[in-house]
């Protein structure tokens, strides 16, 4: 039964010692311990957060870089394409131009040749007519010196006329 009956002396001692111990430890032990633990945990949390932010920043930077690079690449492709197109256009234009002028030259030449040809033919025809007249004249002068020859000639003409 003595087990279950608390001694007043021990109650008093326990109360005094425990409360004093609590006050002592609260001031000299628990307060620095709790605040240091909290500060350390806070600094760890902060460090982790900073690291996370830096990582995000890095990712953002990297994606920005990639975007820039992609844009630059697109720009380059576009410029190349445009240049190629321009070159092609220029080439085509030059070709058509050249063809056109060549055609014109040929056409002009052909026209000139035709004109020259006509002129030459005309000349030749005139010349031939002249020669014919001269030959005819000479022939006339020689052949038609007597009547017989004149007669023969007239007959020949008539023959020709008949056959024609």
């Amino acid at each position: 039964m003595q087990l279950l009956t608390p001694d007043p002396g021990l109650i008093l001692w326990q109360l005094i010692v425990f409360v004093l111990l609590f006050l002592l430890l609260a001031k000299l032990a628990w307060r620095p311990i709790i605040s240091s633990l909290k500060a350390r945990e806070q600094s760890i949390t902060d460090a982790l957060e900073t690291a996370e932010r830096a990582r995000l920043e890095m990712t953002k930077l990297k994606s920005d870089n990639e975007k820039l690079l992609k844009e630059a690449r697109e720009e380059r492709d576009k410029m190349l394409r445009e240049a190629r197109e321009a070159a092609n256009r220029l080439k085509d234009e030059a070709q058509t131009e050249a063809k056109k002028s060549a055609d014109k030259i040929i056409e002009d030449a052909r026209a000139a040749i035709n004109i020259e040809k006509q002129a030459a033919l005309k000349e030749v025809r005139v010349q031939v007519a002249m020669f014919s007249l001269q030959v005819a004249e000479k022939l006339m002068k020689t052949k038609l010196a007597d009547d017989k020859a004149q007669k023969e000639l007239v007959e020949n003409y008539i023959k020709d006329l008949k056959t024609n």
């Binding site: 001694d7 007043p8 002396g9 021990l10 008093l12 001692w13 326990q14 010692v17 425990f18 004093l20 111990l21 002592l24 430890l25 000299l28 032990a29 628990w30 307060r31 620095p32 311990i33 240091s36 633990l37």
Partner: peptide, 29 residues
């Protein structure tokens, strides 16, 4: 009876050990 009985002595020893341990731990922090 306010005697320093065996349990009161144990109580004081416990308190002293705790004070020594945790004040030293607190100082370390």
């Amino acid at each position: 009876d306010l005697s320093i009985t065996k349990n009161v002595a144990m109580l004081l020893i416990t308190a002293v050990i705790m004070a020594l341990i945790f004040i030293s731990v607190g100082n370390a922090y």
